[in-house]
Design a protein around this nucleic acid. Sequence first.
DNA 1: ATAGTGATGTCAGTGACTGACATCGGTCAC
DNA 2: GTGACCGATGTCAGTCACTGACATCACTAT
Lengths: 199, 199
Amino acid sequence: MGRWEPDARGRLERAALELYLERGFEQVTVAEIAGRAGLTERTFFRHFADKREVLFWGQGALRDIFVDTVAAASASTSPIDAVAEALAAAGAIFHERREHARRRQAVIDANAGLQERELIKLASLAASLAGALRRRGVPEPAASLTAEAGIAVFKVAFVRWVSDPGEPDLPELIRESLDELKGALITGVLANAPTTLNG
Amino acid sequence: MGRWEPDARGRLERAALELYLERGFEQVTVAEIAGRAGLTERTFFRHFADKREVLFWGQGALRDIFVDTVAAASASTSPIDAVAEALAAAGAIFHERREHARRRQAVIDANAGLQERELIKLASLAASLAGALRRRGVPEPAASLTAEAGIAVFKVAFVRWVSDPGEPDLPELIRESLDELKGALITGVLANAPTTLNG
DNA sequence: ATAGTGATGTCAGTGACTGACATCGGTCAC
DNA sequence: GTGACCGATGTCAGTCACTGACATCACTAT
């Protein structure tokens, strides 16, 4: 047996989510989280940069899936389709964690500061995605725009998936949402310049 | 003459931007900002919810332009074109404030917390935009997706406009970026289902 | 053994933010 | 006019997120 109980970071993560669910993010002090995990406040801040980050640690895995899937897409795949593959692959890993995702999202939805943190994580994902597209030869600003559109699709699909228990799989919702976005943008193009489409 | 110097809020805004530029956001205390404005720390927090908000107060006007322009678009205008009109209208109001926008953005770009605040303001704009589209009869999730795509276009265009002095007008950049996004999404559609387009 | 090493604890401090109460010109009812 | 009220500001004490410096001590390598 080691000098300390194992998995201090995991204990802190679980204690924090429990307490945030019980009383709300603002009503919980870091000292309480650390106490429930059998640690001290100072140790909490050695594992997480701040009180919010404890809910977001582990996003690195998601970024890796995005980047690797885009990089692995066949050379003939269009940028938006490469992004679609990445979104579906990322969506798949939530399959087993739907209840956990729902609980976590309930905490985030109740606090503006946590929403801010979530948004900057998504923006960081979009930046990584744009970088992966650039490495495929997609020029700016197309790379950033495609990446931002992809993250927007992910956001909208995720909200639907989390909020409605009857919704289908997340990857399925992502496909539907992407088609919906394409339709919404193309409607305008068809209406404005229908004769040029097959030129 | 009144009991106090006028425009306390404006004095706080100007003092904060000056100090953030001189020494960086984190190296400035609220007490210093208030002192330069001839006020106390407590009064700062009566005008702004927190130290970051002093850079973002006034976003309400932007939201009004977005919402009003979408509401005023003719009934035959497609959702994405209504959003495009709103983005161009919003972009136009930055015309006279390019230097101010550049200075402010330099401060924001140097601090993660300020970027978080900027992102939640943009997300709030997207939500307002989606609401305006719903009031035109656009169903979900098309309304949210169109709004998010519009904000993504605005973000990308704004970054280009602020970072490159040689760039054209912001409304012009917004139009270009939107066309670029349409092209990026439609490429896939044309490649996958070219025969159905005029069906 | 002895000298690290690394995760943790202890402690003192800074600064953002809040609640309660005081101040005091200006304004309004009468 | 005068007194009641109002609203922007000041004062003060407090909480809590977060940080830096230093101590501890089981474990490990030599």
